[in-house]
Nucleic acid binder design. Sequence first.
DNA 1: TTGAAAGCGCTAACAC
DNA 2: GTGTTAGCGCTTTCAA
Lengths: 333, 333
Amino acid sequence: MEKNTTIKMVADEAGVSEATVSRVINNSKKVKYETSQKVKKTIKELGYQPNELARSLRSNSTKTIGVIISNILNPFFTSVVRGIEDYANQNDYNVIICNTDENSEKEKRYVQTLINRKVDGLIIATTGNISNYRSLVNKTPVVFIDRIPHKDDRENFDIVLVENEVATYQAVSHLIKVGYRNIGIITGNDVSTTGYERLLGYKKALKEFDLPVQPDLIKVGSFLGDDSYKLASKLLTETNCDTIFSGNNMILMGTLKAVKNLNEIEKKIGLMSFDDEEWLNYSSLEIDSVKQPTILLGEKAIKILLDRISGQGGKYKEIRCQAELVIRKRHIK
Amino acid sequence: MEKNTTIKMVADEAGVSEATVSRVINNSKKVKYETSQKVKKTIKELGYQPNELARSLRSNSTKTIGVIISNILNPFFTSVVRGIEDYANQNDYNVIICNTDENSEKEKRYVQTLINRKVDGLIIATTGNISNYRSLVNKTPVVFIDRIPHKDDRENFDIVLVENEVATYQAVSHLIKVGYRNIGIITGNDVSTTGYERLLGYKKALKEFDLPVQPDLIKVGSFLGDDSYKLASKLLTETNCDTIFSGNNMILMGTLKAVKNLNEIEKKIGLMSFDDEEWLNYSSLEIDSVKQPTILLGEKAIKILLDRISGQGGKYKEIRCQAELVIRKRHIK
DNA sequence: TTGAAAGCGCTAACAC
DNA sequence: GTGTTAGCGCTTTCAA
């Protein structure tokens, strides 16, 4: 097993010191042109590639960002991640993705692992069950996305969120305006703050239009498909709801599964989903949606993070991105 | 800025040598119980966490796998990745994901980067335009997934694939059996071998049933939505096709976009897609599909890779995983 | 402009 | 059982 080419081999071959080779690799200006050429030639000849591990150890920078999300199978997160990755890659950073599956123990473990691997920064969609994040991450820059961390940490980190309450308010207002009166809502529990905020927007809209809040129309479960199927079935069979607002894309799947059991007339029910996806254009039912600014969310997060990494100080920011209403239903009832 | 706790600090504090601390961390059996306890206590007190970078540099193992795919936004790949990640994590490996966007230059660059970062192994859905992969990756174990690498490399790597030809043969056979006669197909160009194989299966089925291969019914483009929209439109307006077989999930989106322009009667067209997704159950059209064994694909790949990493030798394997036909269309024409 | 040498934090061979 | 020490491959003072 032949060894990898090291900086020493290049130095020996080129008849210079390791330091000089290092300077050439790093484009240090202080190398004579001829020396530099000679070294570059030898590098090419030997096919030398610097060992990034050694570099990182020495220079205390891995050019790696850790991204912790709930689940890579969820298109919302994939899209956010893609926003992060593209910008990160442009700036020579790589990204390590970890899935918590909404398990805060897993979240904690991944944070540890990534810190020990000396990532330069972290972007986290937290489960929310972890307090005193600073003690976990020490000086490593962290940007929270999509969800608000524990209240004690809220002031001490940069946070990039979606305008959940506003968007839901607008969505539900739309439903009311076009004639729906008994709007059911299924959303995640407040483990993740998004569920809570969306519920606030829902209530605000009802209030605005002088509609009563009917407790049996409000179903708070998890952000998972199976739970939602049960909750949606309840809404459909036990209440007088004429619309279902699904708190995210997974909940929508559960809702649709339940709606499928209805007869044709009952299927006239209104549907609104938080999270837009392309296939909604080809659904048998006309499903309105709130389109989240996923790519933008990721981009904002990584930009702030890279700024922090490069030493930018200043007060911690809490940013909100606007969502957009996509109306597909043309004829009501 | 206070320094991180190092093994030396622990050693000093506990009154032992660095070597002993190292032994404790690595559960080496050769440490006296009391010493071990004492060290563990100090580790906890100081909140010591080993620097994985230094460890990796020393031990030549990063416990990291590089995964190179086309695009994380494609649910097919996400699912494969999830299969990889779960098994990798169980075995204490982390995963770095990179998107080529079907650009072989990007692929090459990522391979370089990951190799320089000393990943322990690579799993790659190659664009196929790279020859002599061995010279790129040297001794680093590589498993190719989904697509066959350059023919010169085929014998020299482990490869995990889907039974593309068989699955397409079965799918098209089904279409013929239920009465379709002019089956159009849109598939990716043979940059990726999957397109080619699926086309083979298509032709084989026609032949089996003594149907002519009609060149104008075969559209070979890219695996992207926009291209497919144009090709599907052509199929629908310029040919007599009564079915469209979409070569993957992206192509299906383009196809559906084209079909949307049809009138109700024309919409009776048959649809079959390579790649199954949950939302197909809620589509306005009844779309049959070939369900790829995505998770399994990922699992097989990572298992083989970890075996290679742990030094397992033996001949390189080329494995095929079975796909499954999902029939949704009940009444033909 | 270049080289010598220290050292990033850890592991492993060897010695005791 | 435990300590000493060399060194993984690189960058970065400090001197020359």
